[in-house]
Structure formats: C-alpha cells, structure tokens
Amino acid sequence: MIAVIADDLTGAAELAGIGLNHGLRTEVSTTVDEHCDADLLIIATDTRSLFVVQAKETVYKLTVQLQQLKPRFIFKKIDSVLRGHIIEELQSQLTASGLKKAMIVPGNPHHSKKLIGDTFYYNGAPIHLSNFVNDPTFPALSSNIIELLRADGSISLIKKADRLPSTRIIIGAAENEDDLKYWIGKTNNETLLAGSANLFTTLLESLTTPQKVKTLDPETTGRRLFVFGSTFYQGKLNLNDGRHNNIPVHYVPAATICAETSGDHVHGLFASHVASSIVAGNNAIIAINPDFIKDIKVDPVLLSHKMADIVKQVIDHTSLHELLIEGGATAWAILERLNIKKLYPSKLIAPGVIHMRIAGNNQLCLTLKPGSYPWPAHVWETNNYTCI
C-alpha cells in the first residue's frame, strides 16, 4: 500500500485520479480504516483551512494511524502554489513517523508552476506578480521560496550538486520533469517526500504498476448541480442571459453571504429556487457573485459551510445524480454536511478533474476540481448527459 495525506479534498481527488490511471485500487477517505486493502489510500483533510495548531494535531494523528497499516511510504500532498501550513505539517509528520528528513519539491512544472533558483514562477513570471497575491488566506506576497513557505533558517534550498543532509527539511528546485525524477532518485524510505500532483505522478511512474482495475459508474438520472465555492476564481464566469455555458447561474444572496451565522432557515428559499431550476432543466450552478464580496471581508470557512447547507437543502428538494464542486474547502464542507466519508475514483476526466463514486450511495456521485484548474469543455454539454 501507498498512503497519502492531502491538505485539501480536491488535491486528494486529483491524486486519486492519477492512481486510477496507473491501475491502482484507490480509495479516498477522511478517516483511516484499519481494514483498508487499497493499493493507494489517500486521506483527505481540510488542514489548509484550519488554524496551525489544529492542522499539526490532525496530521500527527493521521500519520500514527496510517503507520499501523504498514504502508510502503506516506507521501505528503501539498498545494502546487504552496498555500497552507506546509512546514508545520511536515514537522508534525516527521515527529509522528520517526523520520529525520523531509524533502519538499515545490510546484508543478506540467502546469507552469516552477522553482528556478530560489524564485517561484507561475506562468513564466514570479508568483507575487500573479493573482495569487490576492488569495484571501495565503497570499503570495513574495516569490522567494523560503518566504513563500513562511519558513525559518532551519529550512534550506538544496542544489543538485549539493550533498543532501541526513536530517531536517530541505527543498529541491524543479524546473522540469527531469528535475522531479532527479529528486525522487535522491530519496529513500527514510525520507518524507512532499509535493504536488506532478511529483506524485513521477513517483508512481518509477514504481511497478499493478494491472488496471475496472471500475463501475453509478446509474444516471442526469440531474447535476455545479457548486463554485472558490471566491478567488469567481471572476471567470462568463454570463449570457444569466447562464454560463447555457446552464443557469444562481448567485448566493448577498444577505446570506454577509450573515454572521449559518442556518438552514436562511437558505431555504434560495435552495428551493435552485432545485426548481434543476427540475426544469437538469442542470444548475451555484456561485458567489464577486460584486457581493468586493468590499467586505468574508470568512471563507463560514462561507463554505453556508454553501454546504444550501447544497443539502437542494438535495432534500430534488434527487440529484451528480455534484460537481470547485474548491477544496467547499467540497470538504459539503462532504461533512452530507456525511460522506469514503470515495472511490471512477474516471479521470481531465487533469485535476476527477469523477468519484460515494461509498454506500448508488445514486449520487461527485466530480471534484481545484479552483485553479479549468473545467474541461465537455462537462458543459447538457443534452443526453450520461455519467462519464
């Protein structure tokens, strides 16, 4: 077994799709099942949205539990643009595992996120010049890798010619796929490896792949609800007569966004309206209007729980076949609200876009996507839709 701890749900799903593509019997879970017999077990967390003390405690506990399964190794999935409590979580995982060294290989060269020297680049420019400087929780205020990781002097950047230390956390720069292969070749089972989906793909390619496992999709009803929970990327919606790619868009009311609490009664009318739209046309989008939040401070965690409450009420009003969710924190809140704890990947639709079955539920399925990845064009096709 290979085990992974991911700091958000869509990142976990992304690695699940990679595992599926490599023929691994893959499971995504929010807890560690002592009876799990998967080839690849990915533990999804929401530590990126937690306070640092809570994040460290969560990672420590999960590491201890995973070790009881005796995995070949435990990979640490981190954000490809280095948001989250990366250093603190790695320190906690090292303590729990007894390992002395961790290597971070930042970025995702396949998606133009590269560490060249000590500067982190996104789409060819230093990341602090990109929109990631406006991230509401972890803004990229610098492109220097040490500053971007919010690290101290005990964390060091290692060059290829350098001798690797036997202890502490180190960083390996990766400008291309060959760099990823180089750093993987420099690690062993005494090294905690941390990185993005690109690094994990390269890691799997270096291992023996079991025979591909056939997976089955659940039966379809054709009713879909898109949930765009990431406030950071909402400006990308192109509306035409209230529709995005011919699917009606329903913006969460400003009063709901600004409310200090999250309660079912606040969202009932809006959820009913969305459900009616799905009944009429099989598809609907729930999103955050960027104009509603332009001049106000929004608690992203509370907003995720409000979105989850709305989704639960939409499901209560009408049967759904598929939830398509953008944004890891929103996806996590929805799974919590629906009491979903275990997922099985059934198709890699596009890089980062994963279709998944829900354990114990043959009607509803999930498609998850990180906020920074694009939706593939065919998900917008609304005629004769079948589960893919």
Rank of each mutant, 00 (worst) to 15 (best):
residue 1 M to Q: 11
residue 6 A to D: 01
residue 8 D to R: 00
residue 9 L to P: 00
residue 11 G to N: 10
residue 13 A to P: 09
residue 15 L to P: 02
residue 15 L to W: 03
residue 20 L to W: 04
residue 22 H to Q: 11
residue 23 G to Q: 09
residue 25 R to Y: 13
residue 25 R to I: 14
residue 27 E to H: 14
residue 30 T to V: 14
residue 32 V to E: 00
residue 33 D to C: 02
residue 33 D to N: 11
residue 33 D to I: 02
residue 34 E to L: 10
residue 44 A to G: 08
residue 47 T to S: 08
residue 47 T to G: 01
residue 56 K to N: 05
residue 58 T to D: 03
residue 59 V to K: 01
residue 67 Q to P: 06
residue 69 L to V: 04
residue 72 R to H: 07
residue 76 K to V: 00
residue 77 K to A: 05
residue 79 D to N: 09
residue 79 D to C: 07
residue 82 L to W: 05
residue 89 E to C: 01
residue 95 T to W: 08
residue 96 A to W: 06
residue 99 L to F: 10
residue 99 L to R: 10
residue 104 I to K: 03
residue 108 N to F: 12
residue 111 H to P: 06
residue 112 S to G: 07
residue 113 K to S: 08
residue 113 K to A: 07
residue 116 I to L: 13
residue 121 Y to L: 05
residue 122 Y to K: 00
residue 132 F to H: 03
residue 132 F to T: 00
residue 137 T to R: 12
residue 143 S to H: 00
residue 152 D to Y: 06
residue 153 G to M: 08
residue 155 I to A: 01
residue 157 L to S: 07
residue 161 A to Q: 11
residue 164 L to Y: 05
residue 167 T to Y: 05
residue 168 R to D: 13
residue 168 R to K: 11
residue 170 I to V: 12
residue 176 N to R: 09
residue 178 D to K: 11
residue 179 D to K: 01
residue 179 D to F: 02
residue 186 K to A: 10
residue 189 N to P: 03
residue 190 E to V: 08
residue 192 L to G: 04
residue 196 S to Y: 02
residue 197 A to I: 11
residue 199 L to V: 10
residue 201 T to L: 13
residue 205 E to D: 13
residue 207 L to H: 11
residue 208 T to M: 13
residue 210 P to R: 09
residue 210 P to D: 12
residue 214 K to G: 04
residue 218 P to A: 09
residue 224 R to H: 10
residue 226 F to V: 09
residue 227 V to Y: 03
residue 228 F to W: 07
residue 230 S to A: 08
residue 231 T to N: 04
residue 232 F to P: 00
residue 234 Q to I: 05
residue 235 G to W: 05
residue 237 L to H: 08
residue 239 L to N: 08
residue 242 G to K: 04
residue 242 G to S: 07
residue 243 R to Y: 06
residue 244 H to W: 12
residue 245 N to K: 15
residue 246 N to R: 15
residue 252 V to T: 10
residue 253 P to F: 06
residue 260 E to P: 07
residue 263 G to C: 14
residue 278 I to M: 08
residue 278 I to V: 14
residue 278 I to P: 03
residue 279 V to A: 15
residue 284 A to Q: 09
residue 286 I to S: 07
residue 289 N to Q: 11
residue 291 D to C: 08
residue 293 I to S: 02
residue 294 K to F: 05
residue 294 K to T: 03
residue 295 D to W: 06
residue 300 P to N: 06
residue 301 V to Q: 10
residue 301 V to W: 06
residue 305 H to W: 12
residue 307 M to Q: 13
residue 307 M to W: 06
residue 308 A to F: 02
residue 314 V to N: 04
residue 317 H to Y: 15
residue 318 T to W: 08
residue 320 L to T: 04
residue 321 H to C: 14
residue 326 E to Q: 11
residue 330 T to G: 01
residue 335 L to P: 01
residue 335 L to V: 07
residue 336 E to D: 13
residue 339 N to E: 14
residue 340 I to D: 03
residue 341 K to R: 14
residue 343 L to G: 05
residue 345 P to Y: 07
residue 345 P to S: 09
residue 346 S to G: 15
residue 347 K to W: 11
residue 349 I to S: 13
residue 355 H to M: 10
residue 356 M to Q: 10
residue 358 I to P: 01
residue 360 G to T: 08
residue 363 Q to C: 13
residue 363 Q to T: 15
residue 365 C to T: 06
residue 374 P to Y: 10
residue 376 P to N: 13
residue 377 A to M: 14
residue 378 H to E: 15
residue 382 T to L: 05
residue 384 N to E: 13
residue 387 C to I: 15
